[in-house]
Structures are given as C-alpha cells and as structure tokens.
Design a protein around this nucleic acid. Structure first.
Lengths: 343, 343
DNA sequence: TTGAAAGCGCTAACAC
DNA sequence: GTGTTAGCGCTTTCAA
C-alpha cells in the first residue's frame, strides 16, 4: 500500500495525496477530506525512507553519549527523544564507551543515515574523530568544550555558579579544610570544575592546600581511592566536594568502611544530581546540572541550526546554569563549632 | 556523491559498484579493487534510505522499554545497541513512560520506519496496542508475558530458580517470618514473582502468612510504604524479599529511618541486580536477572525471526535464568540464633 | 562476469 | 488548485 493506491481510491493525483498528508493548505478541503478518508480506511502511513530520499531530509538527529549505563545519561536521552518525537524527528543513539573505534563507527553510521545534526555528549573526549561530520557541515552541538568553532554550537555549563554555592554552603557550616576530588584531568569538564572550586575558595579568602585536591575518575571506585588519600592526610578535611555524584558515593562508601560518619564527621557534596542521589543514605547534597534541561537544549540547538536557511557559521552559544541542591550529607563542622562556643 | 559518480570514475557500471560494496563474490578481483580505490579516495558511503527503499529491508529494529530512566533498562539498551551494530542493524528506541498514547505513537513511528522487528520490554503493559505490528506480521519478541501466541517470540524468565535460592538462603540464616513486597499486581511479572515466592516457601514447609505479603509498585517510595506496613505488624518479619531492587532500596531507607539496622535486625534481598545495587550501603544481596543477557537474547531472537525464509508461525521460546547474588544485606536471624545456642 | 535499465515510494517543479 | 512527471540513490532483474 502506497501513495498511488491512495490516489487511485480517492480519485486524485499522488501529488494531491502528498500535499494533503503534508498539510499543504492549498488543497481543497473537500478533496482533502476524501483523501483522509481513504488514508484512514486503509490505515496508510508514509514511508520515511522514500520521503527522506526524495526530500534530502532524513528527520534524524544523532546523539552520541559516552555511556548510556552511566546514570547521568538516561534522563538526557529520554528528554532528547521526547523533544525529538514532538518535532517529528527520530534519534540515532550511540554510546562510545570511551572507545575511539566505536566513536568512528558511530560517525559512519550517522553519515550513512544522513542525520541532519548530531549532539555530542562525551564531555571533551575523542572529539577529533568528528571531523567527517564537520567537513560536511552537519550541524553539531557540543556540551562544554573548548573555544568557539565555526559551524559548531555549544552548551556551556556555568560550573562556577553551583560550585560557588557549594563552597559557600560549606563555609557557612564552618568548614575550612575542604577537599576536592576531581574527574579525570584529561577531560576539560574536570579541569574546569576544579578551577571553579579553587576560585570559589579564593573568593572567600582561603588558599587551597594542594594536598586537598586529589584526582578521581568520575567512578565510585575512583572516589573511594581518592578519599582514601585524603583520609590518610595528617590533617584530614572536614568536608569534601566531588566532581560528580558517583565520586561522592565512593567517598561515602569509603568513609563508611573507615567508620567516618557522614555528615557528622564529614560533609560530602556531589555534582550532577543524578536520580539516585536523592535515594542514597544519607541523601546527597549536590550541585545540580539539569539533565532534562541539557537534553532539551541540545535538541533545540540542532533544530535551530537545521531550520535556518543560511548555515550557522558562527555557531550559537547556550548556557546551562548549575545550582546547589541541599539534602542531608552536610553538617556543621564539629571542631569549629566547639571552638565557636568557647568564644 | 553517489554510486553513479563512483561507477564513472572506476569505469564500471553502477551495478558493479553495488555488487562490490555488498561483497558479492562474482565481481572480478581487479574490478573490485578499482572500485574500492575510488570509494576510499572519495570517502564514499552508501545512503541507507535508498538502500532500504529499493531492497525493502530497513535494517532497523525497534526497542520499546517502559522507562529508560529506570535503572533496569540502560544496560539492556546498551547491549541491544551493541549487538545490533555488530550485525549492521540500527535501533529505534522509545520509552513509553507507561503512557498508552506514547505507546501508540511509538508503534506508528516503527511502522513508518519500516522496522523489521520489535522487542517489547514493558513487562506486560499495554500490550494490545501492538496489534498493528502483529497484523503486519512484523517479528515481535516479548519478555515474560502470557501464553504463546502465533508469530511472537518470548523470552521467559525463570523466576523460580533465583527466588528459590533467595528463600533457601534466608531459611539457612534461620529466618522464618519472611516478608515479600510485590510489584504492581497488574503486571504479570509481579504476580509470577509472588507465586515463585509462595511456592519456594511451601517447598521448605512454611505456609506464608498473608499479612507478610504486601503490594509495592517497583519504586523506592513504594518499597518504603510497603515496609512501613510490615514494620507495624505485631510480629514483624526478620527478613524481606522484594520484587525488585528499587523496592529493596526503599525498604532499606525506611528501616534506616526507623532505626532498624540492615542486616543485623533485618535481612533484605532485592531482585534484578541493577548496577547500583552493589554500590549502596550495605551492598544489596539480590536475585540477578541479567540485563546484558536479556538485551542480547532479544536482539538475537529478532535476528533469527528475520533471517528465516518461512515466517516463524509458532514463535520461539527462550529462557533466561535468574540466580542469587550474595552481598551484605542479609545476616543470621538473631532471635533464632540465640534460641539455637540454648539448645 | 558485467552492464542496461526498471523501479522502490515519495516530493516538487512545472504545466495547466 | 490540481495533475503529470522527473528523479532522489540504490538494488536487482534480465540480457549479453
């Protein structure tokens, strides 16, 4: 069953059927009605492949994430898909799993399917592998990477805003020795978070002891190991800020093992606000970087690029704010509090 | 750049280019070599839409899950995608979010994209909405639902195996009053798990007190509420088996609030073995239902249906075993243990 | 073994 | 406002 069959039964041309289905307003209402009747009677639906082929528009966007099993991503994927469906787009999803080969393959698949745009959420990894896409001037949106580049849009993350709130929250709870566990420093997003931490500390008059900054790798195990180092310090921190929530969970797990009670003995703050952070015990105070908002922005950025008639040479810059979500993993610094009482 | 361009430059016909690219062995090696050279020089790759249109094979499978943000699914999606890519298939993913409208829309999208098969992982929900697919004899694979149906394959879950292990593990730890928190009883998967529990208890000579079976809804909040009921019982259970891991996390959260210590005062066992279960405190003992295996089986089931020349009228039945994973949320029943010492 | 050519289902340019 | 028709890029007969 195809458009010709519909045309025959509705006694119109295929062009009229096509126009009707695409809601082109020049079709006479009565003709349109006749067409719709047949369409519904036969349960006809158009063939997207044929459509894409002739129109040169696939109505597919690619979405590249580093790992769908990383709890940070499912919400993004969900919202991206949801927004896409609302705009009659389909999504070609791929996880690179930090593997350049998979990344290369993903680019190939995107090209073969003639995607109209690609959102890249690998936070700065293997970015050069996307050159094939850039070459063909396919709209691209990145999250949180490097300097502006031609034809590429960016969603900048305002890390400083949330991290400053976190630092000030800890300072208000009278913490001074505040540790920071970074992500893998090969990632720009990780170094930027670290810098936001250092700057926020400076702003409140504290120069960060370099020993208090330890490299993690955004995994729970990395958080455990990193906190291990912090805990062995002669003067260990009373609070730890982590580059993501999984790291914070690692810190909590390690401190549980070492009989350090969160939040009484140690305040912990995460970053991302992934879904489970509210469910762990104690519920995690964290800096939210809205995954839903990120998914929506990424889709709309691509849609915007695709819909303009002149190519978006300059790229567009978007900004996603971060902000502190208070829960129960932070508390007053006991030592400082005792001191204060004496005063 | 298209196949004609390649043909011209390689001084062969488009047919030969097509054959070469599709690795049809009748092409002369030297001709093939010439074609490949041009293909590589120009960075040519075929257009999947055109291919699909003319061959009538989209090389796309649909994957319908109830919620990608449910931690049970990301691993499945990942493995499904991974296996698909290995077989040169693409995947059309959708979350129904338990919404019949979205389900209906998903079916429509699948049809428009001419998917060759659909894996349905909604565990028994809104299944009638898939009639359009059945009607068109599109290969379908379900997980864990109803009786065999024509043209539909099924992955059965051997719930009993794992649940029996869980019950026997608890019994060995001298628990007798064992509670069970079900999933939403509208779901077949939930009632089947409950029945497996009752049977396993009967097998070890215990008739389950109906008060000890409480309905949950597979969410953390549901687990909290359900355990609230169990905790208020005159004689509360010393162990609880849950219909999924999120429920178990709810139980742990609620017992934390009520100063009931897991596992000393209460043993808890989950079901599913989602990723985070190993990370929570204490690490959760749970019945594993391998998500990776499920994703792989679902893909291969569809592939199998698609590759046979005669339609799979009878459908194929697959079985996925479940089995207990011991971690740290269970312990010896204190009361019974004391009694035993006296003996 | 290779090439010529038909045609997959649809859109859009053009003619009326 | 509607119809006729070319053609999107490819696979696949069929003939040579």
């Amino acid at each position: 069953m195809n458009i010709r069959e519909i045309a025959k039964r509705a006694r119109v041309s295929t062009a009229t059927v096509s126009r009707t289905i695409n809601r082109i307003p020049t079709v006479q209402p009565q003709l349109a009605k006749r067409v719709w009747r047949v369409v519904e009677d036969l349960g006809y639906f158009p063939n997207t492949q044929a459509r894409a082929l002739v129109s040169g528009r696939s109505r597919i966007f690619g979405l590249i994430v580093s790992e769908i099993t990383n709890p940070f991503f499912p919400e993004i994927v969900h919202v991206f898909e949801d927004t896409a469906v609302h705009h009659d787009y389909e999504i070609l999803l791929t996880s690179t799993v930090h593997d350049p080969v998979r990344m290369k393959l993903a680019v190939r698949r995107m090209l073969e399917h003639r995607v109209e745009g690609v959102a890249v959420m690998t936070f700065g990894m293997e970015e050069s592998l996307l050159d094939d896409l850039k070459l063909r001037k396919i709209p691209l949106v990145f999250v949180d990477v490097g300097p502006p580049r031609p034809y590429v849009s960016n969603i900048r993350i305002d890390y400083l805003h949330g991290i400053r709130q976190a630092v000030q929250h800890l300072a208000a709870l009278r913490h001074e020795r505040i540790g920071f566990i970074t992500g893998p420093l090969a990632l720009r997003s990780a170094t930027t978070r670290r810098e936001a931490f250092v700057q926020s500390m400076n702003e409140i008059g504290i120069t960060v002891d370099p020993q208090l900054i330890v490299e993690g790798n955004h995994t729970l195990e990395g958080g455990e190991a990193a906190f291990g180092k912090l805990a062995r310090l002669p003067s260990r921190p009373t609070a730890v800020l982590c580059s993501n929530d999984m790291t914070a969970m690692g810190v909590m797990r390690k401190s549980y093992a070492e009989k350090i009670v969160v939040p009484q003995d140690l305040s912990v703050i995460g970053f991302d606000n992934i879904r489970i952070s509210q469910y762990i015990l104690p519920p995690l105070t964290t800096v939210e970087m809205s995954q839903a908002e990120l998914g929506r922005m990424a889709f709309l950025a691509l849609l915007n690029d695709v819909q303009r008639e002149t190519p978006n040479r300059a790229g567009t810059e978007y900004v996603l704010k971060t902000s502190l979500v208070l829960r129960e993993s932070t508390a007053l610094n006991k030592r400082a509090a005792t001191r204060a009482e004496r005063i």
